[in-house]
Amino acid sequence: MKNVLIASFDMEVGGVERSLVSMLENFDYENYNVDLMLYRQQGDFLSFIPSQVNLLKEIKEYKTYRKSIKETFKEGEMLIGISRILAKLNSELKGKMAGIEEPGYIQMQLMWKYALPFLPDFKKEYDVAISYLWPHYFVAHKVKAKKKIGWVHTDYSVIETDIKSDLEMWNQFDYIVAVSDACKEAFLHKYPGLRNKVIVMENICSPEFIIEMANKKIDHTMFKDSRFKIVTVARLSHAKGIDRAVKALKMLVDKGYNDIAWYVVGYGGDEPLIRNLIKENDLEKYFLLVGKQINPYPYINAADLYIQPSRYEGKAVTVGEAQILAKPVIVTNYPTAKSQVSNNVDGYITEQSIEGIVEAIEKLYNYPYLRSNLTEKCKEKNFNNKHLLKDLYKVL
């Protein structure tokens, strides 16, 4: 039996966390002992962790990464708190000097880098240690393992990171797993020297589980809404483009499309901004925020159209889930879109703009046969990819 450590931040509702649950549900526990290290044991997906997984005790220093600077000081972690402040100030300075509008990724890197001396080493040694969510400093620098693997879930061509700092971390890993070919190429464009380490493994999904969950009854006004329903499942963040969705719907309503309702399932830091945008555009009856849902699948199942209006993605878990439920899908043309959707076959890729989103909705709204064609192609496709875990076992 090989001993495997998997590390991640928490089990809050999100695409990465859903993909982690799917991987854990299908893991080979006859040949592997699996320890799961969560920096903070919180989130609605905690209950989905299989019983075969050994959930390790929290370590108070690592819990700070899911807490504010104020909370960190309040709990007596003074040195970590100071390192967090330095990371914030230095990332803002680097952002201004380099003209980076959103230096949040650099701040995340620096807060790990500066805090490393004050974080405890992991005592147990493993055959394999997997870091499932960037930044991977914990597994890179604090865990002893014969082999280390880091996961890449995002499109590195559109995020600003400190390359030197990242390379110091990535060089501690034997393998780097990208969730799509496009994700791999975007990563290698930034870090070409790491090519020999990068492999591709798509997010594991279970169509049976998704279909079962989609058929559960949920009490929500959406299910009584007779209008044409658009659904998006996403974090309320700049990356996911929900602000553009609001503006696109405003354009449609102004054009006379008064029987469209757009439901967004999810939560995030941009919620106040989105709510203000909805109010400013008088869309309270048309653009509706459902909030965080442990089970988003009945909402997707009730949709006439699923849309992912993202500015960038690694590989959107929710798009694949909508296709499993045979929904006509629209995605914006973010750099990795073509790795997930075959345009005009099992989905529709529209140009990366508000006008592009509007044009795509009009087209699929006005021509039901186009929606039907996309649905039929999704029904023909086999989305079960549990066999991909065999590729991971070869690496292990």
Rank of each mutant, 00 (worst) to 15 (best):
L5S: 03
F9I: 12
G15T: 07
E17N: 14
L20F: 02
E25M: 07
F27L: 09
E30Q: 13
Y32H: 11
V34E: 03
V34C: 02
D35Y: 04
L36Q: 01
L38G: 02
Q42S: 13
G43M: 06
F48M: 08
P50M: 11
S51C: 05
Q52G: 05
V53K: 02
E58T: 12
I59S: 03
S68Q: 13
E71W: 08
E71L: 00
T72C: 09
T72I: 08
F73D: 06
F73A: 05
E75R: 13
L79D: 08
I80S: 01
I85N: 01
A87T: 05
N90Y: 05
I100R: 06
G104V: 08
Q109L: 07
M111D: 07
M111V: 04
W112L: 03
W112C: 02
K113W: 01
F118A: 04
P120M: 09
F122T: 02
K123N: 12
K123V: 13
E125Y: 07
Y126R: 04
I130R: 00
I130E: 01
W134K: 03
F138L: 12
V139A: 00
K142T: 03
V143I: 14
K147Y: 11
G150P: 00
G150N: 07
V152M: 06
Y156R: 04
S157D: 01
I163P: 05
S165E: 11
S165R: 02
S165A: 10
E168D: 14
Q172P: 00
S180H: 01
D181L: 09
K184W: 06
F187H: 02
H189Y: 08
P192F: 10
L194R: 10
R195G: 00
K197C: 08
V198C: 07
V198F: 04
C205Q: 11
P207I: 08
P207S: 09
I210G: 00
A214I: 04
A214F: 04
K217H: 08
D219M: 06
M222G: 03
F223E: 12
K229V: 11
V233G: 02
I242R: 06
A245C: 13
A248E: 14
D254A: 11
K255V: 07
K255T: 10
G256A: 09
Y257Q: 11
I260R: 14
W262D: 08
V264K: 10
G266D: 12
G266K: 10
E271Q: 14
L273H: 10
N276R: 15
N276G: 12
L277F: 04
E284N: 14
L289E: 12
L289C: 10
V290R: 05
K292R: 13
I294P: 01
I294G: 03
N295F: 04
L305W: 12
S310N: 04
G314S: 06
G320P: 02
A326E: 15
K327I: 10
P328Q: 14
P328T: 14
V329H: 05
I330T: 09
T332E: 01
N333C: 04
P335Y: 00
T336F: 00
T336C: 01
S339D: 15
Q340P: 00
S342V: 14
V345D: 14
I349F: 03
S353V: 09
E359Y: 07
I361F: 08
E362K: 15
Y365E: 15
Y367Q: 15
P368I: 13
S372V: 09
S372F: 09
K379A: 12
E380D: 14
F383G: 06
H387M: 13
V395G: 04
